[in-house]
Design a protein around this nucleic acid. Structure first.
Length: 817
RNA sequence: GCCCGGGUGGCGAAAUGGGCAGACGCAAGGGACUUAAAAUCCCUUGGGGCUUAGUCCCCGUGCGGGUUCGAAUCCCGCCCCGGGCACCA
């Protein structure tokens, strides 16, 4: 009756995984006909930058969460498109090439080859038929096309502007790439202010829509919040302070209600009116202050000492509310790039103004009186107060006075309501080599001429001399044979734009290209795009919340407005995954705590590693990588292996009601957990189920426990998204001939999942005093009667009368005495 | 300072339309099997208490209050950790 134990093969992950990866390729299990798919589901992961080091555990963790979601959706009957590509342009690749003294174009292919191998080894359900690389001319031709669309729409402009210059990268950085005044790539290198002609995308035109749509797109709250902060909308008013010489100084304020307390004004050193407003006597000192301020790099200006410095211009302006003349100062605590570059100073109700006023002995006038007693020491910025010293507005609450005073000043054309954003235009010029050349030609006669679309791509020339320099121009500017070109309009000798574009332009639209990756005559096929986009699910790291994710939304909106497709938001659902850390610290090469996935996969197999990473903690929170726990998930697989290899000898349908109930509860739990990316608890539920199955079957003389196939088939399907090779092998051993991914996701029956008997908790005055096993559905009266029979309950109740009972169906009864 | 997360056993963590705190797993301790070890299997495992060792009692989810029959969960006031923003007017 019992099979000899020698029949049971040992689960050997390496052999099993190799077998199924071959089988999948042979069957083309992961391929998909995009045009014919009936239930399209676009499952996107953030495409990697193919570094020389290969995939690290963080990448693997991120991709696994996406892959499990995709496999789950596939088993639910969707036609899942899970593409992959490589974000191979950019400073990172170029710097590495310079460091090892090689050409990036030579290094990238082998890096990509290594990534491909690793990605396949993990067992991702990737669609390799649509692989792309941003460095492929067949791709960046369309990156340049995107630039031209924005140029034609007036959303790309070249302007001379102060930009963030990293002396180490020897190129400019977008604001988003500057962290605390330092280069995001060179944390110890201060970013300088430099004035250069640069190409900008006018993302600020879209600030309001980018902000408004955050209210309805289904994204992780953390990501939406970061975008809101970055866009930084604030509402207020622009007020005008006139000078006796007829100048109108415009200021932006969020507190027009405090205008009666404005006792002086401050202009940013770069403000265009500074020279004109400065009196003859003050000219020398103002010029000197200005020169020093502008020369300061951004760091010492923004994050350096907050001590207030400034100089008086010698001029006065009229407070529009009081009519008083107030002095006009120049100080570097006012920034040119925000608002109008000038402020009204209300020292009583602004800490910075207060500090400045104390330093230079300027007047302080309180105009708000707090409603709450106490804490009335100046300065305070509370909105909970009423106006004082404010003429006819005395006694009015601040919030109300904002509108009232703005309207009152507007009557004399001295105010208007205004909304400000912190967001700046996106500087896309890079004075580097390894990127797509910006498709523009400069002609002395015709000016700025876009490269005709028929001439795309503008190929990046293969040059050996691509080291960046301090000149503020790209290395391409040293290659005259490349940049000399005939003007497309007049034919005269002209000059190509020698800057390349930011990597974030490459990655800002790649998801639009995937379905059309083999279409040659256009960037994206209209039918395929309509069918597959917007993306159904996007999962990635929050480090891209204000870079990639904001730019991708902007580009999608702009292309939508140009009529290229119907949708304006690219990613309907976005989930930010957590970070994997090691010993509490982010993994980094310099810390030496980087975990290489390959070693673990070689030792444990991909499925065990997949399971382990997902069991580590909540997917959306991440966790600490400690390899002690990995043996636990391996034991779990071994237990299933034992059940599967011994199964099939018992008549089907002989499962007990208890086992069947647990099965349906498990299906329910795993289904809802996977839906919400709660992989850790889904795995725990399957472990519980396996424990129940094993407990059910008594062991005879060391024989493997046996359970009917009907209890194992569904388990194998539930497990398939997380441990696909293992599931395939089990599926086959249970007698199936096709891939487990052709199976249907098991459905559960709510009635079968229902417990017949429940444990009712009995409380007395809210404290647990006993537990009752009762039939499900028991009513309150019966439950109370039964509870009062319990000895511990009687002891707790004593001789006190039961004043009240609280009853929660099938859960609890509470006696209040 | 502002905006998001988060704080639960030795460890990773479960449990929030308020209802058994600690599922699942690791580690640890004890036992079985074994010549032995590994593997495997079984038991114990938040802290404390007991004259009745139990279907027992008390305490316990960062801290202090509150609401409630009942709070990890809700409210008020704080502290700490992670991330984002920041002389942004």
């Amino acid at each position: 009756m019992s099979e000899p134990k020698t029949d049971i093969a040992t689960y050997a992950p390496q052999a099993v995984e190799a077998k199924w990866q071959r089988q999948w390729e042979e069957w083309r299990t992961n391929a998909l006909d995009l045009a014919d798919a009936e239930r399209p589901y676009y499952n996107l992961m953030m495409f990697p930058y193919p570094s020389a080091e290969g995939l690290h555990v963080g990448n693997v963790f991120a991709f696994l969460g996406v892959d499990i979601h995709g496999r789950f959706r596939r088993l639910q009957g969707w036609d899942v498109f899970e593409p992959i590509g490589f974000d191979a342009f950019g400073i990172h690749s170029e710097n590495y090439a310079l460091q090892v003294n090689a050409h990036p174009g030579k290094l990238i292919p082998s890096n990509i080859a290594r990534f491909r191998e690793q990605l396949k080894r993990i067992g991702l359900m990737l669609n390799w038929d649509h692989e792309l690389s941003t460095t492929d001319p067949a791709y960046y031709k369309w990156t340049q096309w995107v630039f031209l669309q924005l140029y034609r729409a007036g959303l790309a402009e070249k302007k001379r502007a102060p930009v963030n210059w990293c002396p180490e990268c020897k190129t400019v950085l977008a604001n988003e790439q500057v962290i605390d005044g330092y280069c995001e790539r060179h944390r110890g290198v201060r970013v300088h202010q430099k004035f250069l002609e640069q190409w900008f995308f006018r993302i600020t035109e879209y600030a309001e829509r980018l902000l408004a749509n955050l209210d309805w797109i289904d994204w992780s709250e953390s990501t939406r919040s970061m975008q809101r902060n970055w866009i930084g909308r604030s509402e207020g008013a622009e007020l005008v302070f006139e000078t006796p010489t007829g100048h109108r100084i415009r200021v932006y304020t969020t507190r027009p209600d405090t205008v009666f307390g404005a006792t002086y004004m401050v202009l940013a050193p770069e403000h265009p009116l500074v020279e004109r407003l400065t009196t003859h006597e003050q000219l020398a000192v103002v010029r000197e202050y200005r020169r020093a301020a502008v020369a300061k790099d951004i760091v010492s200006r923004k994050v350096g000492s907050r001590e207030k410095t400034g100089v008086f211009t010698g001029s006065y302006a009229r407070n529009p509310a009081t009519g008083e003349s107030i002095p006009v100062w120049v100080a570097d605590y006012v920034l040119m790039e925000y608002g109008t570059g000038a402020i009204m100073a209300v020292p009583a109700h602004d800490e910075r103004d207060f500090e400045f006023a104390k330093t230079f002995d300027l007047a302080v006038r309180q105009v708000v009186s707090l409603s709450a007693p106490g804490q009335t020491e100046l300065p305070f910025t509370s909105w909970d107060g009423v106006l004082v010293n404010s003429g006819q507005f005395d006694g009015m609450p601040c919030a109300e006075a904002v509108g009232a005073i703005t309207d009152w000043l507007a009557e004399r054309d001295l105010a208007s309501r205004q909304t400000q954003y912190r967001l700046h235009d996106w500087c896309i010029s890079r004075q580097r080599y390894w990127g797509p050349p910006i498709p523009i030609i400069h002609c002395d006669a015709c000016g700025t001429v876009p490269v005709p679309e028929a001439d795309l791509p503008v190929l990046l020339p293969e040059v050996d001399d691509f080291r960046p320099d301090e000149s503020g121009t790209s290395p391409l500017a040293r290659h005259e044979d490349w940049y000399r070109v005939a003007c497309p309009t007049c034919g005269a000798t002209a000059r190509r734009e020698t800057d390349v574009s930011d990597t974030f332009l490459d990655s800002g639209w790649y998801f639009l290209r995937y379905p059309s990756s083999d279409v040659n005559d256009r960037p994206f096929d209209p039918a395929l795009t309509a069918k597959w986009l917007p993306v159904d699910s996007y999962i990635g790291g929050n480090e891209h919340a204000v870079l990639h994710l904001l730019y991708a939304r902007f580009l999608t909106m702009a292309l939508h407005d140009l009529g290229h497709f119907e949708f304006e938001e690219p990613f309907l659902r976005f989930r930010a995954h957590g970070t994997i850390v090691k010993d509490g610290a982010k993994m980094s090469k310099s810390r030496g705590n980087v975990v290489i996935p390959d070693e673990y996969i070689a030792q444990w197999g991909a499925d065990t590693f997949r399971l382990y990473l997902m069991f580590l903690g909540p997917y959306q929170e991440g966790g600490d990588f400690r390899d002690e726990g990995i043996v636990g998930v391996r034991r779990f697989l071994d237990k299933i292996w034992g059940l599967v290899t011994a199964a099939g000898h018992e008549p089907d349908g002989s499962e007990s009601p208890e086992a069947r109930r647990k099965l349906h509860q498990t299906i329910r739990k795993v289904t809802t957990d996977l839906e919400e990316l709660r992989y850790n608890t889904a795995i725990a539920a399957m472990m519980e189920y396996v424990n129940v199955l094993r407990g059910m079957v008594s062991e005879e003389d060391g024989a493997e426990p046996r359970v009917p196939i009907g209890l194992l088939d569904p388990l194998v399907v539930l497990l398939a998204p997380i441990a696909p090779h293992f599931a395939e092998e089990c599926w086959q051993r249970l007698g199936n001939t096709k891939s487990v991914f052709t199976a249907d996701w098991p459905s559960y029956d709510e009635a079968l999942a229902q417990e017949e008997e429940v444990e009712l908790v009995v409380q007395v005055n809210g404290k647990v005093r006993g537990r009752l096993r009762v039939a499900a559905g028991i009513d309150e009266a019966a439950a109370v009667d039964k509870a009062l029979e319990d000895a511990a309950v009687q002891r707790a109740v004593g001789d006190k009368p039961v004043r009240r009972t609280v009853f929660v169906q099938d859960r609890l009864v509470n006696l209040v005495v």
